[in-house]
């Protein structure tokens, strides 16, 4: 698996984990502006990274399959392959 793809996958894991942890904090601190701002920052970063991954390597999750003629999801190698 090439270096870039690996790096992008790792980043997606890191940013997704941070959002998950932050959601736990926000569940009990719904008005905390620091946490809300940080959430928006991470959400944007994750969205961009996921779009980049999908563009370069195909859909990472099967909610992002764009191909209307062929179910691309089965054609591409699994993300970990």
């Amino acid at each position: 698996m090439n270096q870039d793809k690996n790096k992008l996958l790792l980043y997606l894991s890191q940013v997704s984990f941070a959002i998950n942890d932050l959601v736990l904090f926000l569940d009990t601190h719904p008005c905390d502006t620091n946490a809300l701002n940080y959430y928006q920052e991470l959400r944007k970063a994750r969205k961009e990274a996921l779009a980049e991954y999908t563009h370069k390597y195909g859909p990472l999750i099967n909610y992002d399959v764009d191909d209307a003629c062929y179910w691309e999801w089965v054609k591409d190698p699994w993300p970990w392959e």
């Binding site: 894991s13 890191q14 984990f17 941070a18 942890d21 932050l22 601190h29 940080y38």
Partner: peptide, 16 residues
């Protein structure tokens, strides 16, 4: 709220 870990460290440590 406090200063959180950077993304890499957060995932490594299991908390941000």
């Amino acid at each position: 709220w406090c200063k959180v870990y950077d993304l890499a460290k957060g995932l490594n440590q299991g908390t941000i």
